[in-house]
Nucleic acid binder design. Structure first.
Lengths: 226, 226
DNA sequence: GCCTATTGTGAACGAGCTTTCACAAAGGAG
DNA sequence: CTCCTTTGTGAAAGCTCGTTCACAATAGGC
């Protein structure tokens, strides 16, 4: 007996959410077509009405994570003119995103989402690359305005920023939410923010004095494959 | 035709290494008993002479990662009396460990190693908890001697340290080694080291002045589930 | 109220996986 | 040398999973 009948766009949406929910609860190992279908209240075979196969569903999951992560960065950048404030906002939004969706670190940050194709692995890496590019864009902006130290290249600081929330996210997902990610953020952020400031001991808003950039000056902000 | 015949301890060792190699090359998705056996030059059924089942093999893999990670921390701590130098050494050793063994982030840092049992998940979390405890021990030592700022609790700084190398490790594993983890380390470490220093603008070796510890003073260095 | 494209279902197939088992060979103890 | 434990093998069982298919039921345009 067919249950309620819904349009395919709605079902696609539901199935992506169901897949995320299954991954959040039981890990990626249990991410079977049957589990996703059951979670969405459908028979396993119904999935093939809305996706060509399991791989396409997994792609859609990645695509949704991409939208949310890049969306978080873009929104924060648009809302806050100041680079440091924008980074802080990104930090808050990302943690909120992870809290809402425990599967995020398993999809994006684990480095081992089940992408079969080699081209798909590249796309996965591309997601993180674009994410880091967006962060580096904010950092570079702050560097131009003297709000962020210029003796370290923007890309490295962006990776450092990633390190500010990735361990917290993974620990939170691993511990089933017992790791206090809010406290970690509250304590770690000021340290990071202070580390971003120009090393000039003058007022924190002053333009960077650019004290000896040493050997790392010529480093470009390349793409991840470097 | 039986190939060369070796003692079970040697085979266990070989099989763990084979499993790590398979994971490093093809990801955890392809970590089948057959793949591990082929890599070790054995028939699939031979694995059951040396391990009760696949799960036990996976446990042994985790155990080996545990030894190596905790060993790296302990060795660095023993070799360097100064806390900051010890942390730097841990950082170098861990990156070396990851470079030698691309599977490490997939086993330990992804938060989604295929551990079936709930007790096993706890043990996995316990590994990271002990790792963070060991790091926090070094940090606390540095705090006592005034080498590291005391206005942030040791555990939070330990997680921050984890963030110094986890993203690099994951990016390196995801990009098949194209991400330049050495450069990232070279650029990021000074920033982190500087952020560790007591906020007192006096000489970096002076005892901490302990300027306003604010609300976070009473925070204990709890275990990860907090 | 009918028609047709769309959505849902249960059964079944085939592939791949873990595990077991009967049997073969090796290698040290006696 | 002989025996017996240990180690290795190939075949097959048993299982889960992704996918296909014939068929049923719905919803909306006419």
């Amino acid at each position: 007996m067919p249950r309620t009948r819904l349009r395919t766009e709605i079902r696609q949406d539901q199935l992506v959410e169901a897949a995320l929910a299954v991954m959040a609860e039981q890990g990626r190992g249990s991410l079977s077509v049957a589990a996703v279908a059951r979670r969405a209240g459908l028979a396993p075979s119904a999935i093939y009405r809305h996706f060509p196969g399991k791989q396409a569903l997994l792609d859609a999951v990645v695509e949704r994570m991409r939208e949310r992560m890049l969306g978080a960065v873009a929104a924060a950048r648009a809302a806050e003119p100041d680079a440091i404030a924008a980074l802080r906002r990104v930090h808050e939004r990302l943690l909120h995103l992870v809290r809402q969706n425990r599967a995020l670190p398993r999809v994006v940050l684990s480095g081992d989402y089940p992408v079969g194709d080699r081209a798909r692995r590249e796309r996965m890496l591309d997601l993180l690359t674009r994410f880091l590019d967006a962060l580096a864009g904010i950092v570079a902006d702050g560097q131009r305005r003297g709000r962020i130290r210029s003796d370290v290249n923007a890309r490295s600081l962006a990776v450092l920023f990633l390190g500010l929330f990735q361990p917290a996210a993974v620990l939170w997902a691993m511990s089933d939410g017992r790791f206090d990610v809010t406290r970690q953020a509250r304590e770690a952020w000021p340290v990071f923010e202070q580390a971003l400031r120009p090393s000039d001991p003058a007022s924190p808003g002053a333009p960077a004095v650019r004290r000896r950039a040493r050997g790392s000056r010529a480093l470009r902000s390349r793409r991840v494959p470097a």
